[in-house]
Every structure is written in C-alpha cells, then in structure tokens.
Design a protein around this nucleic acid. Structure first.
Lengths: 192, 192, 192, 192
DNA sequence: GATGAATGAGACTTCATTCAT
DNA sequence: GATGAATGAAGTCTCATTCAT
C-alpha cells in the first residue's frame, strides 16, 4: 500500500530537520542515519549521494510550496485582494503541514550544490508569484516596483517571520498571521 | 599608527567575500590564504582558528551595521517618519560601504559556530531597532505587531532585496531604494 | 542425477567471466549475482564467502588444466617431441573448452586471497610439467636450464599469447598454434 | 639540489612494492602511507588521487623500461643477433635497477584504472620491439609469426622468469641469464 | 531454498591546524 | 614574523555479508 518505503521517509524527515537546523555542509551522513534510525549505508539505497538527497528534498518541498500557493489561488476569488489572501493562506498552510521546510528552502536556495533542475523548480515558484504581481500592477493595485523587489519583500518577510516562529521568538496565532498579512499587503499594494 | 596590520585586513577582506559567496563550511583556510595572498599559517597569527575568524568577522560587521543605523538616527530628525528614513539610509550606507557584508551576516546569523558574544552583538542590533519600533507604537504610528515580527519584516525584506542586487537580479538605483523604503514604511506603519 | 545445482553453475560461470575481466577486487558480489541471474544472498548458500568462491573457482580450473595436460600425455606417444605436442595440445584444448579460464588463472595465481590448497593445486600443475622436463633433460633433449625457468618460459609465453587472442590482438588459427608450438619447442629443447 | 622531494620518492617506492605485491585494488592508501613513513594526507600533496599515483608510477617505469631497451640498441652493434643481445641486456639492466618494477608493470598493464596516456606509453614500448622484430623478419632471421605473438613470447617469458627470481624460485646468475637469452633467441629466430 | 533490503566496517579523500625553517 | 609542507581526524561512500520474509 505504501508507495514510498518507510526508511526513505525516515531519511527524508531526518534530513529536512538537520539541513534546516545546521545547513547542508554541517550535516553529516552519519548524523542523518542516526536520526533516521537507519544504517549509514541504507541512505545510499535510496539516494545516489548527499547532493542527490538534498536536491530531491529541495525540489519536493519547493514543488509542494508552489502547489499550496496555486491551489490557494485556484479557489474562486473575490477580487485581487482576496487572491492575495489565498496566496498568503497557501503559504501558511505549507508551513503548517511541513514544519522546518520553509527554513530549509530559505537557507538552501542559493546553495552551490543545487542542480539546474532544483533551480528551475525554485524559479517556477518565483515566476508564479511574479505573474500574480504583474496582473496586479496592470490593474493599478500593486506598487510599481520591479517584480524581483516585490518577491524579495514578500518572501523575505514571510520566511523571516516564519523562522522566528520556529525558533520560538514569535508564537503562531491567527492574530499574528492576520497582522502580518495586512502588513505585507500594505507593503505590496499601492496606497489609496 | 596603523593599529590593524595589513595582513590581518587582507585576511578579513578575503574571508568576507568567500564566506558570503560560499558559506562558512565550504570555505577552506587555504582558499582564504590564497585570496588574501598570505601563507596558510599566517592566518593563525591573527586568529585563533577558523571559528574565531568567522566570529570576529561577524561581530565587526554587525557592530558596524548597528553604528550605521545609530549614526543615521543620531542626526537631528524631523518626526518619526524621518527617523525611519535615517535608519533606512543607515542600512543603505552600510551595504554601500561594505559590499557583501550584509549577505554574509544574513547567511551566517544562524550558524552553529557563532559564539554567545556574536549572538549578543546581533541581538543588540535587533534590540536597537526594536526600541525604535516601540517608540513608534507608543505614538500610534507603528503597527501593533510583536516587535520581532516587525524586525523580521524589515530585515527579511531588506536583506532579500539586497541579495537580489548583489546577484544582479535587481539594479541599485535611487528610485529602487526610495520605492523599497516607501513599501517597508507602509508595511510597518499604521495606515491612516 | 545432476550433482551440481544449476544456480551454483551459473554463479561459477558468471564469476569466472567477471574475475577474468576485472579481477578479484574489482568484482563485487552483487555484480556476480546479477550476471548469474541470482539473488545476492543465494551465492552464500553455495559458497562460504567471496574468498571461498574464488578459491574453488581457481582450484577447479587449475585442476582441469592439469587434467587436460595429463590426458594429453596419457595417449600413446611417439617420442619425447610428440609428448610435448600432446602437452601443448592439452593446453590448447583447455583454453578452447574454458574460455577466459586461463586469463583468470594467470591474473589470480599470485593473489593474497589464495589458500594453501589453491597454491598446492597450482604447484601440482607446475610439478607435473617439471617432471616431464626433467625426463627430457635426462634424455639430453631439453635445455639445461632450471626447471622453474623452463616452466616460466612455457607458461609465461603461452598465457601471454592466449591473452592476446582473448583480447583480439591475435586471431586463433591452426597456423598460429603450430607456429607458437614450434617456437616454444625451440625455446625449451636443445638445439641439434 | 634534489629536484624530486624526498617524501614523493618514498611514496613512489612504497607504492611500487605494494602494488607489485598485492595489486592496485588490494593496496590501500594508509598502507602506502605507513610504508612510506608519511601521513596519509601527504600522499595527496604529490598525487591527485590513487589512480593518478598508479598511472604516474606505471608511466615512469614503462618509459624507463623502454629507455633501457633503446639505449641498449643504440650501442654499436655487430649484426642482428647482437642487437637482440643488447635488447635483452637492456631488459636485464632495468630489472636490476628497478626491483619489482617489472612485476608491477606485468600485473597492471591491463588495469581498468590506466589512463589513455599510460596505455600509449605501454604501446610505445611494444611498438619499439615490434619494429625490431619486423626488421629481423625482413632479413629472414626472425620467425614468421605475427608480431604480437613474438612480443607475447618475449615479454611473457621474460616477465615470468623475472617474477620467479623476485620470489626466490630462481636465483639470478649470469649463467641463468645467458641460458634464458639463448632460449628466447631460439624461440624467436628461424632455425637454420 | 531463494531473495534482496539493510547494515557497518573500512576505503578514499579533504582540510583545519601545527611547526620546522 | 611569515611560510607552506606535513599531518590525521573526520567526512563521504562502497560493498561483503546477514537475515527476515
């Protein structure tokens, strides 16, 4: 019934936590093996090598992040602001379903070990949000900043807030989320 | 007269660039030595070891970042919004005077190799801006979000924008800076 | 009726080819399993371990090589030169019946993994030919060189020629074989 | 004065002995380091990796073997048979100056780790002797066998004899050498 | 009997650090 | 003070072998 072997999942989970916590280079394969409660050699049955592991992990989570955002937007929406709300909600959903994953993505998205495929996956994610912004700019709703600046503001803020939550510098409440969403909307939208 | 020997400076500069570009773990001491045009052993005359080097580098730049912000605020100011402008300008000044330094700070601020002292230096920087925010909240100018959320939004956005610039995804113009400042002010301030 | 199970034979054949081609150390047990179309664990039903496998393989083929030579000589013979012809023919027969086997023997006869028993089997082979040479020396037909030198010349040449054939640097023809036999006879026999 | 560092020489010597004795795969880098009385890491200051080491070792000795043969032939010679004598003498000289080297060459000349350059060096050696044989065939002195067969007989015999000497199955005397030379000449030359 | 997923010992290799020059 | 050759601890990865199915 299980399509993905149990051990592979354990390796994936352990990797995510360790990479997010310590970074790719500072995480050793024996560390991963121990945390996944698996022999060191077992990792290599499921992943060609350490780089392969980090790339698969990265792509899977970036893709799922994108899915969360997309499926948020796919819902019927009530105006552009509501579309933004869905995107924001998608981002929140992702962070809730995949603890530490956003921290992992953030600290590894510039890594030299990323393959072209991984970079493309990330690029696709960025592109999707850019498209949404372009539409808003056409409608005169979104600020007239370069798309990359808008992305940097949205993702930079969100990821940093998220990291504060994971590190217990902030506690995750609906109130906080609503406040951050409002703040980011103000950052991105033209002020009336 | 020269308090800091020439070689030490060379090591510092080379380290900054390499750490910013490749990260702490992926940067080797021989690499630093070569880029600093210094023998590998010479580094150990000036720094106890690699961790010591990265910590001194981190602290120095965090402190200088703080100085830039503080000295921005120290100027006579014309209302709270103008104070924010000075802080923003201080941040910009820092990035201009210390290329790659903000990238280095961003990617190393969670490193396991950071000493308590380094963490405190970073904390002090955060604290300073928090104080500024608290004041603004008292005056009803700044949003009623947790201070850490405000910091996350300000620093997260700024660092990400800055990284885009360094990686040539954005070009540094006064217009861009003005736009980003305006956006961040909107994110942080209560909307009238 | 079948005394040797089919799978064991498959393992033997696959091992021979791989050991001959890549050598003992560069051949992995999974490789053997795959080529023998057998599970990796199955090999251990028939052989205690990798060393055991290579030793049994070595002994079997050395013994069979010896048999080919012996049975060549066993035929009624027409003088000493004709005896040599039978020996040579036996060697040729062996190489024809057991492709790659001589290459395997040649490249593994000095291996550190060989047991005393394997070395003795090889020694027995050498001894048999030595005895034949001693007889020839008594009759004044074979050169007055140390037996080991005679063996080295005969086996060294033959194995090297054989390897050239297997690697397609030489093509196996009756003419070639006749020529080589004549050459080796000249090398070993006293010139009239 | 010393152009090649002492340690590199020690590594070379230790490698040669170990590779000759146990083969490439069965020889570990720590083994080499220990025998060379050098730290394991030191080997990598002089050789890129294990394959690089074995290839440099192989090429150097093959080239020197060729030089010995060539410089033997370069001497003024008194007829074709005398030329063969010089070649044989060159081979003997090489084995005397480079103990174990011929055994190393013999057991590694088919290795999968050899680079194209190494194969070419070996090919050049073979080619040189082939040319000598071709000349002899034109003069009707050398047997009408394929060149590769002649090479196989000469090298195969010589290397095997040599290995017997190194393993103390034969003792190296002028008498033995004279006898082997005479035997090999008989193997290669047309009988009058 | 047969299998192949799992293991961990041990191989190759890198690199922070030392120290003789 | 400055150097860089030398080191060995530690990391990545392979593969002979076992054992639950």
């Amino acid at each position: 019934m299980e399509s993905t072997p149990t051990k592979q999942k354990a390796i994936f989970s352990a990797s995510l936590l360790l990479f997010a916590e310590r970074g790719f280079d500072a995480t050793t394969m024996p560390m991963i093996a121990e945390n996944a409660k698996v022999g060191a050699g077992t990792i290599y049955r499921y992943f060609k090598n350490k780089e392969s592991l980090v790339n698969e992990l990265f792509q899977q989570h970036v893709n799922e992040f994108l899915q969360c955002i997309e499926s948020g937007l796919a819902n019927e929406r009530d105006g552009y602001r509501d579309g933004f709300h869905h995107i924001f909600e998608g981002m929140v959903t992702f962070t809730k379903n995949h603890p530490r994953a956003l921290g992992f993505i953030k600290t590894h998205s510039q890594g030299a070990f990323l393959t072209e495929e991984s970079r493309l996956a990330y690029q696709k994610l960025v592109e999707f949000v850019c498209t949404f912004f372009r539409e808003g700019q056409k409608q005169g709703i979104i600020r007239n900043l370069p798309e990359n600046a808008l992305i940097a503001i949205l993702f930079g803020s969100f990821m940093e807030v998220y990291e504060m939550i994971e590190n217990d510098y902030l506690s995750l409440t609906d109130e906080l989320l609503a406040g951050v969403e409002e703040s980011l909307w103000a950052a991105l939208s033209r002020q009336s």
